[in-house]
Design a protein around this nucleic acid. Sequence first.
DNA 1: CTCAACAATATTGTCGACAATCTGTAAGCG
DNA 2: CGCTTACAGATTGTCGACAATATTGTTGAG
Lengths: 227, 227
Amino acid sequence: MEGEQLQAIETSQSLAERLFVTLRGEIVEGQIAAGTKISEPELARRFNASRGSLREALMRLESLGLLERRVNVGARVVELSERGLLDLYEVREALEGMACRLAAQYHTDEDLTELRQMLAHHEKQEGLQAGQAYFQPEGDFDFHFRIVQASKNDLLIDTLCNRLYYRVRMYRYQLGMASPRAKRAFREHSHIIEAIEAGDGELAELLMRRHIRASRNNIEKKLTRDH
Amino acid sequence: MEGEQLQAIETSQSLAERLFVTLRGEIVEGQIAAGTKISEPELARRFNASRGSLREALMRLESLGLLERRVNVGARVVELSERGLLDLYEVREALEGMACRLAAQYHTDEDLTELRQMLAHHEKQEGLQAGQAYFQPEGDFDFHFRIVQASKNDLLIDTLCNRLYYRVRMYRYQLGMASPRAKRAFREHSHIIEAIEAGDGELAELLMRRHIRASRNNIEKKLTRDH
DNA sequence: CTCAACAATATTGTCGACAATCTGTAAGCG
DNA sequence: CGCTTACAGATTGTCGACAATATTGTTGAG
C-alpha cells in the first residue's frame, strides 16, 4: 500500500504546508466527515509523512477552527451545528459590514473594475440558471472575498479570508446552504457596489449587513422548518 | 547555565502549552521586543525543552498573530505599526459593536451583576486616580472582556478574547496607549451597560462603536501629533 | 447481573539526530 | 570598481524512537 501523492501541482513550499492545504480541502468538502476522530499515525502513513509534519498541519487546522484538539486525547474534526452556523453569520455581518464601510473609503480603481467584472460574469451565469444554483455559491464567495480585499485592512482581510471563510465553505458544502435566492442576491450585490463606488461607507455597510442578515434569516427559517 | 523554570503554578497540561503561555506573556509585555528574530535552538535551550515542543508553541503564537513565520527562514515577533493599531481598532469596533447588540438580547442576570460590580470597582479606583492611570487599562480590559462573554456567541468570544485582545494588550504595553480619558470612558461604559440592561441592542451597539471609535480617534490624533 | 478496579493496548507528547535550505562572506570575472 | 558566483556556517524542516497518558477490554467482588 503506497502513500498517496498530494497535489504536486502546488508550488511545494513545505511538506507540512501541503498536508495542511490538502486536509483543509478534505475537511471543508466533507471527505473527512465532521466529528471524525483524527488518528495521527494513520494519516501520517497515508501521506508517507512523519507524525511531526502531520502534527504541524493539524495545529494549523486547529487555528482555523476546523479541528478541535485536546491534550492527551487527540484531534476531532469540528462538529457542525445550527448554532455554529448562525453564530458565524453574526460575525460575518459585523466584519463584512465594516469591510464595506472601509472599501467605500479606500478602494482603488482596480478594485472597482474587478468587482464590476465579477458582477457581469455573475449575471451571465445567472441567465442560464433555471433552478440549479450550482456555481452560484462560489460566485457569491468571490464577491464577498473581493469586497474584503478592497477594505485595505490587513487584519480584517486575514480574519475573514484566511479564517472564517473556510468555515463558511464547510457549512455550505455539508449542510448545502446554497442560496435559493440568487436573483435577489444579485441585486443586493449590485447595490452594494454602487454604494462603494459612490464613496458612501455608511450606506455600503448598511446594505451589506442587511444582505448577510437576510441570508441568516433564510437559514434560520429553513432550520426551524426542518426543526 | 541552567534552563529556567516556567510557571510551575499553572496546572501543567503540556510542555508546549506552558511554553506558549510563557512566551505569549513575554511578547505581549515586550520582554521579547517587537521585531525580534526568534532562534529555535536558543529558546529551546533556555527552557530545557526540545525544539519540537518549542515549535508547537511558536505555531500557536503565529496563529495569534504575535509571530510571523516564513518557511526556511524562521519566526519573528510581529512588528508594531501605527497602521496595525488603527486596523485593530476598526475590527474591534465591528466585533464589539455586534457583541453589545447580542449581549442586550442574550445576557443573563449574572452577566449584568458582574458588569455592574465591575463598574463600581472601576469607579472607586478612579477616585484615587489623579493622573496615574495605572490599573485603568486592565480594568477597561475586563469590562470589554465581560461584555463579549455576555454575547453568548462562541465564535465572537473566541475571536476577540483568544485572539485580538492579546494584540491589543501588546500595543498597550509597548506603545503605552493607556487612555488618558478615564473619566469619560467610565461614563461611556455606564451608558453601554444601561442599554444592555434595557435590552436595546441597537443603542448598545451604537454606543460601543462610538466608544471604540473615540479611542481610535484619540490614538490617531496622538500619532499625527508625534508625526 | 451490575459495577469497580485493573491490565493491555493504542495514542499522544517529547526528544535528539539527520537532511534540506537559507544567510552572509569572500573570491572570481566583466 | 561593481556584480555575480561559489563556499561555509547556521538554521529550519523532517524523521523515527521513547516516555507519559488516555482508552478499551477483562476480571473479580458484591
